[in-house]
Design a protein around this nucleic acid. Structure first.
Lengths: 227, 227
DNA sequence: CCAATAGTTCGATGAGTATCGAAGCAGGAA
DNA sequence: TTCCTGCTTCGATACTCATCGAACTATTGG
């Protein structure tokens, strides 16, 4: 028998559940009540939805005291949602025509485990321009000079390369409609800039807030031309 | 506003519509009645579903006389369904535990525009073994000797490479749980072996039937060790 | 022109399910 | 213990939507 794709799709195909999943695209683990309030429903309803999402293997749950922390099951689930995002954003751009309600969200946000938005697209372009990654329109690769560059930045390339997941992967940005960097390297960049204190996650959204100093350093280190 | 992923997901999240989409994963254009019978519903119901799928930009329709031919909108939609397939197949393997009902389907089938199943996995392995493609666990690439090999096979590499779509792309096979070849090269291989008459599409399913002679030639040309 | 086939529209029915109030359970705090 | 909070279970309600019969439009073939 072919697997039944409708089971998983119908889990996502419900507005409130979809809202919860989008909230979890921040990569953070959220409690049941946090997810309930973010989707504007009661805790009873949220509980029902969340158990369905866990049963459907889209979420994992970790119990901690009297709290239950929910998270996306892994990057595979995140990638599925990304694909849905780009397909959802594509056709309506002309018909809805209104810009994004939140310009800050358009500028920089988290896409599960890597950076997205204008900043991420600029970063991608800058890395290509400097020859650290190569985008030959078929696939995205890290170059030798790129490996040297990231090693110099403090990354353990061998470690993050030794993974089933691709090191580099271009991921279509739904707001910019251009490539940004995903994969384990994209993951490292996000973790690195958070640990360096250049930016911090928003508490309640997928947004990323750069400090003005952090933004300057980020642009300088990665050779991004600031306007 | 973030795009609403639930709209598209709910289109797929209905069993009969999902069946129709799976039927269209054969890559062929099918008429409304063909899709209706394949999903065991009346033409009225099918008509309703199909118009929703077209409105949701998952299908395109082409009118020809009194027939309406439906097709997946493009490889992006096919890739979304592939991702759903692998996620759907993954968790239940141990719980359901039964093999695929149709061993022929497991052996070789079409995945929108490329080959899938055991044959496709063997092909992938053979190409890697001979150094025609390189799978460095991060991404899949065609090598120079691979380019020479496929040019010798009659492919116009420059033409199929000059595309927004990746030339090589590994695609996880849901039945084998291993990589097979997708992308424009995977597309070329399928078209080539069909045009050479080594195999033919099944009329009513995603199955691919190799002629015994065609299978021998296929194995020989691509250096696949037959058991 | 008439018959046959492909597909659509409309309306009624029915199944599935999201929602929340009320009650219950469990972990942590006083 | 007693209270408070986070989460779950149960049951009733309401809403969405898949389904099909019946009637209708459009295209092809004689």
């Amino acid at each position: 028998m072919e697997p039944d794709i409708s089971a998983i799709a119908s889990l996502i195909g419900e507005t409130t559940r979809a809202q919860m999943l989008m909230a979890l695209m921040s990569g953070k683990a959220l409690t049941a009540t946090e997810l309930a309030t973010s989707a504007s429903i009661t805790s009873q309803t949220a509980s029902s939805h969340l158990s369905k999402l866990v049963d459907g293997h889209l979420l994992v749950v970790r119990k901690q005291g009297r709290h239950k922390y929910f998270q996306l099951r892994g990057h595979e689930v995140a990638e599925l949602i990304e694909k849905l995002l780009t397909l959802s954003a594509a056709p309506n751009t002309s018909s809805i025509a209104t810009g994004p309600s939140d310009p800050k969200l358009r500028e920089s946000r988290v896409c599960y485990d890597h950076l997205a938005g204008e900043v991420a697209v600029s970063l991608y372009d800058a890395l290509v321009r400097q020859g650290y990654i190569a985008d030959n329109s078929s696939e995205t690769l890290i170059t030798d000079s790129g490996k040297a560059f990231f090693t110099n930045m403090g990354a353990d390339i061998a470690k993050i390369e030794n993974n089933k997941r691709p090191l580099c992967k271009s991921c279509l940005d739904w707001s910019e409609r251009r490539n940004h960097l995903s994969g384990t390297l994209g993951q490292w960049i996000l973790e690195d800039l958070l640990s360096k204190g250049w930016a911090r996650r928003d508490l309640n959204s997928r947004m990323i807030h750069f400090s003005s100093n952090g933004k300057t350093l980020f642009n300088k280190k990665y050779g991004i031309a600031s306007i």
